Simulated assay, not measured.
Amino acid sequence: MDANPAGLDTKIMRNCGKIHLKRTKIDRLMNRLVVLIFMSLVLISVALTLGFWDKVKEFKAKHHYVSEKLTYSVPTESFFTFWGFLILLSVMVPMAMFIITEFIYLGNSIFINWDRQMYYQPQNMPARARNTSLSDQLGQVAYIFSDKTGTLTRNIMTFKKCCINGVVYGGTFPDLSFPHGAAQHA
């Protein structure tokens, strides 16, 4: 028996692990794309820096009025040239992409707030989107778990409709079939 109650099994120690940031699939995809674009930007800047030094030597050899003496050492001059190209080409990184998706999320959350079919009559409560990326997060639901005791559902479970492997089941809706791979999960 452990005499020390303040060990690794305490609540505070169990909850101080890694922080899991919740991100949507679109956010993760955009982050990967931005990293890929930035890496290509660095490679292009390195290539341009190397090409620049090759052309500068040729240019200085042809034009006598340009000083062949460098004000900085070759590594320092290369460093400044690289950062100059990196800054010049930084417009390749599409920061507007994040802003546009946030506006799209905002528009979707406004439509959720306006949706009359999402009104909950027993509590006289309309739907409220408290998060702009709510619609994207709802589209990623893969499984729904419920209990039999009524703790979560107040013992009122109504099956409306679901889609399994592209086949829609239930409800008064027409039977819509989705192509395999584009199945929606309810």
Rank of each mutant, 00 (worst) to 15 (best):
N131W: 13
R128K: 12
Y143I: 15
F145M: 09
T151G: 06
N4A: 11
Q121P: 09
E77N: 12
S109K: 05
P94V: 03
K60S: 01
Y120P: 06
I26M: 06
A183Y: 09
S78A: 10
G166C: 01
K161Q: 08
D27Y: 15
Y65P: 01
R32D: 13
K57W: 09
V141Y: 04
Y120A: 14
N113L: 01
F52V: 01
V35A: 14
G139D: 12
F178Y: 11
T76K: 11
G51R: 04
Q123W: 14
K11D: 15
F159C: 02
Q137F: 12
V141H: 06
I12S: 04
I26R: 14
Y65L: 07
Y169V: 09
Y119R: 05
A47Y: 00
T158G: 11
E58T: 01
L21V: 15
D175L: 06
H63P: 00
N155F: 07
T132D: 12
L48H: 03
G84L: 00
L176R: 08
M92N: 04
L43K: 10
T10L: 09
I87M: 07
F38I: 04
D27Q: 15
I37K: 00
C163W: 06
I99R: 10
D115W: 03
V93W: 00
Q137D: 15
K22R: 06
M30Q: 05
A127T: 05
K55F: 08
T49A: 04
A61P: 00
T101D: 05
G107L: 07
E102I: 10
G84K: 10
T81Q: 09
S135A: 15
N108Y: 09
V42M: 01
R116S: 15
M1V: 11
